[in-house]
Write a protein that binds this DNA or RNA. Structure first.
Lengths: 125, 125
DNA sequence: TGTTGACTTAAACCTTGGTTTAAGTCGTAT
DNA sequence: ATACGACTTAAACCAAGGTTTAAGTCAACA
């Protein structure tokens, strides 16, 4: 089984090593193996878990929420309904945030239009 | 001219008064008037400026950026090109963030689908 | 007259999400 | 043998964005 070093993972995801260590300390990377020298070994499973972590982070889930999710993953099939509920709720939150940003974008577009017009009128004189 | 007290504005926008004071201290509310007792008086102009501030905040512009924008607004028509550039750049950033969230949402949807299927299969046995 | 209630301030405090630092341990190439 | 590069840790540090606290002012009401 192939293992990745922390620097490889950091490069792969373009994330500082310090962040990976921080996530580990925060409990986002349980089951992380170590070599004889105590160095972290990331398995393929860890990599795909990390992909999930990044996906949740990209959608602004707090570390504490991600941790809960990961704990449920580790706990196994008995937590699937909990995970489903969490993901459904999270999806709602994400859609709400996208909706809010999209709405606010209208206000920004309005300004852009107004400023462009103003500049155009200035040039016409 | 109608003026609003800090508590009225807080209620209107559903924002804590402390946040309004914080924004004022950070320079997001220049030209804010005061009554004889030193209490803040929000004019209609302040209200619409505040709407803009909230719009920019909703789209994750940092306080420092909002401050810069407000300063340009106060400075007047000479800064319109700067404001246009800023809003165009900000729009790009917002679209990028929406795109990233939308993309990550796919991963979340995948999990939802998978979990639902798993639960369904569990019930069928 | 005094005591609420709505405001004020400066300063301290808080949380989140990391980053940086200092000191140390390995394995390997010279 | 030693020196280098890749890793380790705990603890300190940081920035952003507020929130809370303590002490005070003022107007109006009982």
């Amino acid at each position: 089984m192939k293992f990745y070093s922390i620097s490889e993972v950091a490069a792969k995801f373009n994330i500082p090593e310090s962040t990976l260590r921080y996530y580990d300390k925060k409990g986002l990377l349980p089951l992380l193996e170590r070599d004889e020298a105590g160095r972290r070994l990331f398995s393929e499973d860890q990599i795909s878990l990390l992909e999930t972590i990044i996906c949740l982070k990209n959608t602004n889930m707090p570390i504490s929420g991600i941790k809960q999710y990961i704990e449920w993953v580790v706990e196994g099939a008995t937590t699937i309904e909990l995970r489903l509920e969490m993901m459904k709720n999270h999806k709602k939150a994400v859609l709400a945030e996208i909706a809010m940003m999209t709405e606010s974008l209208k206000g920004i577009d309005l300004k852009i239009t107004r400023y462009k017009k103003h500049i155009q009128e200035g040039k016409e004189k």
